[in-house]
């Protein structure tokens, strides 16, 4: 088990290094940060000085290396535009993104599993068929359109919920949270639904097809033949056997919830790291972009590590042979 975790951590480090390398390679082509940093009234001398100061004259491998060297020490450089350390920028904005991702992930998981089980058990029912059809819309509509539609209905027409921002936030240590104020919670609802809807329909369809598969197996028939209650059969025996693929997909989706928060954050002007990344692209703020990409990569890698560990928790067949078995 420990060997497995160590091996995975080692693999993760390699993945992160490669992500960073690719990121830096790309940034050479997104434009010249000097253009946006210096105004119209600039001299060639200013440009040369600034280039030297930012280290832009170094070969990109050296730049990459310097970035890594700093990153290991927790230094991600200074934002070209804001002039403050990137780590500070991220720390200010990460809570917003993580809270949004958490709520929409929870929404996707609970909603997806519940609807998936329901549509599998009432396969031919009217409600189940309606849900399945509606889920096609959820899968095929682009996120920003769902966001705009929700804003139009609930913020503009009904005026029930705010359309942008986080509402009031409370600072606890270095973390700002919107969970503790009513305006903060109200502000979370629309972006969380927007961000989680696609994942929810995906999880729902996955759970449904896995459930249908499992409900046909002999051990489910045998469980029924023993007179176990429908609840025990469907949830105790069937649902647990659908968990492995569901955990895999949910893990991947959780990663993309954070990554794709960019679009939702733009639509709702959510002050998270996604919005920060979009702004950074406009200004070719390389340290911010690089840090953001590394952060997303770390998140993906971490989630997948947790997924692998969950396999062990769910499926006894993967655990190391116990001494009691011959």
């Amino acid at each position: 088990m420990i060997a497995f975790v160590l091996r995975r951590v080692f693999q993760s480090i390699i993945v992160l290094l490669i992500v960073g390398l690719i990121a830096f390679l790309m940034f050479r082509y997104v434009g010249d940060p000097i253009e946006s940093l210096l105004g119209q009234e600039r001299t060639f001398e200013d440009i040369a000085n600034l280039r030297e100061r930012l280290g832009l004259n170094d070969p990109f491998i050296v730049q990459y290396f310097n970035f890594l060297l700093g990153a290991v020490q927790g230094q991600f450089g200074i934002s070209y535009r804001a002039g403050v350390p990137v780590s500070q920028l991220i720390a200010e904005r990460l809570p917003a993104t993580l809270e949004l991702a958490f709520v929409s992930g929870l929404f996707a998981l609970i909603g997806g599993v519940a609807l998936g089980v329901y549509t599998a058990l009432r396969r031919k029912g009217v409600i189940a068929t309606t849900i399945m059809t509606a889920s096609l819309i959820g899968v095929s509509l682009p996120t920003f359109l769902i966001g705009i539609a929700l804003i139009w209905v609930f913020a503009v027409e009904l005026q029930w919920l705010p359309s942008n921002g986080r509402g009031e936030v409370v600072a606890i240590g270095g973390w700002t949270t919107g969970f503790l104020t009513s305006s903060g919670r109200a502000s979370l609802i629309l972006p969380a639904i927007t961000l989680g809807l696609f994942q929810m329909t995906l999880i729902m369809r996955l759970v449904r097809s896995e459930m249908l598969e499992v409900l046909r197996t002999d051990y489910i028939k045998f469980a029924r033949a023993r007179g176990l209650s429908a609840r025990a059969v469907n949830f105790g025996h069937a649902l647990k056997n659908t968990l492995i693929p569901v955990i895999t997909i949910t893990g991947l989706q959780l990663g993309s919830i954070v990554a794709f928060a960019i679009i939702t954050e733009t639509v709702f002007q959510w002050p998270g790291v996604g919005l920060m990344f979009i702004n950074a692209i406009n200004f070719v703020d390389i340290p911010v972009m690089a840090t953001y990409l590394m952060l997303i990569a770390v998140f993906f890698v971490l989630v997948n590590l947790i997924v692998d560990l969950l396999y062990f928790a769910v499926d006894p067949r993967l655990r190391v042979e116990r001494p009691s078995s011959k």
Binding site: D218, Y219, F222, A225, R226, G227, L228, N241
Partner: peptide, 20 residues
Amino acid sequence: VRGKKIAMIFQDPLTSLNPL
């Protein structure tokens, strides 16, 4: 009735037990 009065045994013992 099932399990209490009538029980059933299926063909394949490898798949009749819940693996988890």
